[in-house]
């Protein structure tokens, strides 16, 4: 066939694996990182903390995947898929760390596929309904600003694995926030209709923000050991960022964050989470003995 050898392309080793999405299984993102539990850090606490951060990312990624083949432009499908991939990568490492820290040796899939909704530790905003594109943008703006503020500090965590995951995640999250900001500006300061949609999205999302800054006892204990960040510590920074973006986007300032209480971090969820997990876990649960 005109001298083309298809086999060559298939069997040769590809040296370009670095350009493949993080976490597709060809490189070890934690190579060389000491996985010993740091002194004074309780393994059970660290495992729960890793689930909190991991579940936020996993559940948010699961929501974002819905936009692939359903976004306003192909470029948005590529961008949102990319963000979901980053979050999925973070979730996998954090859940694997949870299984090391609690001594059970459970892997990422044991956490993702074999826990019940009440065992998930994500905040309610991550599981909230997808809504329209404005809702997706505002949710991403809030969650990425919050997570970026956390990860920037967690890069100095006393737990070397959490520190490595956070250091890697900072660049990813900075991009997620930049993407959300660019769309918040376009929608807020675009047409009267898009302004209205964006303002409505802010009004819908804002009541869910209080929970992001409420400290669970696990977070407080680990923060005292230098392994976690007390979420209350990032409250002001995140508020400043969001206020600046919303003002620039000509959207009404939503005021201070509401007072929130710990809910998702305790495993108490809205009715939205169970069907989301049902879809995520369906095939794995139908074939409990299978390997993939």
């Amino acid at each position: 066939m005109s001298g083309d050898n298809i086999f060559t392309g298939l069997v040769e080793e590809h040296d370009g694996d670095a350009r493949w999405a993080f976490g597709t299984g060809f490189t070890d993102a934690l190579a060389g990182v000491d996985t010993t539990l740091p002194e004074g850090v309780d393994g059970a606490d660290l495992a729960l903390y890793c689930q909190m951060l991991g579940d936020d990312a996993l559940v948010q990624a699961q929501r974002l995947v819905d936009w692939v083949t359903d976004a306003p432009e192909l470029e948005e499908e590529v961008a949102l898929a990319n963000i979901a991939l980053d979050l999925l990568g973070q979730a996998r490492l954090l859940l694997a760390r949870a299984g090391q820290a609690d001594g059970t040796g459970r892997d990422e899939d044991a956490f993702a596929y074999r826990r019940a909704p009440r065992e998930f530790r994500n905040v309610h905003l991550a599981e909230a309904p997808r809504g329209d594109f404005a809702r997706a943008v505002v949710t991403l703006l809030v969650l990425s600003s919050h997570r970026l503020a956390l990860f920037t500090r967690l890069a100095d965590s006393a737990d070397p694995v959490v520190a490595a995951i956070a250091a890697k995640g900072v660049n990813e999250l900075a991009y997620h926030r930049e993407y959300a900001v660019s769309w918040a500006l376009r929608l807020g300061d675009g047409t009267p209709y898009s302004h209205e949609r964006a303002a409505e999205a802010v009004a819908d999302v804002w009541p869910l923000t209080g929970e992001l800054f409420a400290a669970h006892p696990v977070e407080s204990r680990l923060a005292a050991r230098g392994a976690a960040v007390d979420p209350a510590d990032v409250r002001e920074e995140v508020h400043t960022v969001l206020t600046r973006v919303l003002t620039e986007a000509t959207l009404p300032a939503p005021g201070p964050f509401p007072e929130g209480t710990v809910a998702g971090r305790e495993g108490r969820h809205t009715a939205e989470l169970a069907p989301l997990l049902e879809e995520l876990q369906r095939v794995a649960r139908e074939h409990p003995e299978a390997t993939w």
Binding site: A21, G23, L85, V283, W292
Partner: peptide
């Protein structure tokens, strides 16, 4: 959305992207 492992989910999402 229903890929049965997180690795397969990441591979498939990257492929569709």
């Amino acid at each position: 959305a229903s890929a049965p492992s997180l690795r397969r989910k990441a591979i498939l999402l990257a492929k569709v992207q």
